[in-house]
Each structure stands twice: as structure tokens, then as C-alpha cells.
């Protein structure tokens, strides 16, 4: 189900924890699986559980508790905008509104061509660089004025 490279990365994570505590690698295993497949289906969750020797329920519980796991397909580019107070004081909400208009979608929706989905996020620990947009969970873009958003969008294929 996962490529050899993903499994290799999970094995590296497993090495960080005691032999008897494989469960500690569940968060990174889910992250690695999601990075490869785009989202976490029930089958993926069962696969990860099998790989780590855990009950599927124990893995499902983790996948539903943490905000950054996607339990449904999302856009090829998942854009999460922080609108918490410190960011809102420096244009966080404006950045979200601009993206809504530009992509003609609301929060939680995917564009018709499947390329973009838009999400509202909580504090990402980058409030001094507001507005911030997180792309595909892993790449943080700072100081996202409308011009910066335009050039970011232009760079995606």
C-alpha cells in the first residue's frame, strides 16, 4: 500500500523509540502515509495499524484527534490560513477572504478542478510573520499579502 521509501521513513521513526513502544511512531507513520497518499482512508489507517502491530481503533483515535490529519480527500494543494487573534490583527482574515474570492470556494471546500482546498487554522506559532498560509501541512508561507498570495498561486502547477 505504501512505497518502499515511505516504509523506510517509518522504519527510521521506529528507531527513535524503545523496541516495546512502537506505538510512539504512530503519529509520524500517519504523517508519512498521508504525505504519500494525500489523505487517510480507512484502509490506510488499517494498513498503518498492521505495520506497527496496533489495533486499528488505536490508530483511528489518533488520526481523528489531531487537526492536521485529513480523513477525506482534499485539494492537491491544501491551503490553511491562520485567523487566530494575533494573525487577525495583521491581516489573517483578509488573506483568507482574498483566497476565498480568488479560488471561488469557501472554507472546507475543494475547487472544481481538484487543485485547491481552503482551510481555517489555529495559531501556527508564527504570529510575527502574519498573515501565514500553510501549504500541504508542511510548507509555511509568511507575510502573505495579496501580492504574495498571487505569486504563490502562480508557482503551483
Amino acid at each position: 500500500m505504501l512505497t518502499a521509501d515511505s516504509l523506510f521513513q517509518i522504519d527510521l521513526e521506529l528507531k527513535k523509540y524503545p523496541e516495546s513502544q512502537k506505538r510512539s511512531a504512530v503519529m509520524s507513520a500517519l504523517r508519512i502515509a498521508q504525505s504519500e497518499l494525500g489523505w487517510l482512508s480507512q484502509d490506510t489507517i488499517k494498513f498503518v495499524a498492521g505495520y506497527l502491530g496496533l489495533m486499528p481503533m488505536a490508530v483511528y483515535e489518533v488520526a481523528t484527534f489531531y487537526n492536521m490529519y485529513d480523513l477525506a480527500p482534499r485539494g492537491k494543494y491544501k491551503l490553511t490560513v491562520c485567523t487566530n487573534l494575533p494573525c487577525a490583527l495583521s491581516g489573517g482574515e483578509d488573506a483568507l477572504d482574498y483566497l476565498k474570492r480568488k479560488l471561488s470556494i469557501s472554507i472546507g471546500e475543494v475547487t472544481a478542478d481538484g487543485r485547491f482546498s481552503l482551510h481555517e487554522g489555529e495559531c501556527m506559532g508564527a504570529c510575527g510573520y502574519a498573515p501565514v498560509v500553510l501549504v500541504n501541512n508542511h510548507s509555511m508561507c509568511r507575510n502573505m499579502t495579496p501580492q504574495a498570495i498571487d505569486s504563490m498561486l502562480a508557482e503551483f502547477d
Binding site: 523509540y17 503519529m27 504523517r31 484527534f65 492536521m68 490529519y69
Partner: peptide, 10 residues
């Protein structure tokens, strides 16, 4: 010493 990555929970 190892790094552990969280995934979004205050």
C-alpha cells in the same frame, strides 16, 4: 536525543 513531530493539537 530524538525529535518527535506533533500534528496539530494545542
Amino acid at each position: 536525543l530524538y525529535a518527535h513531530h506533533g500534528y496539530g493539537a494545542y
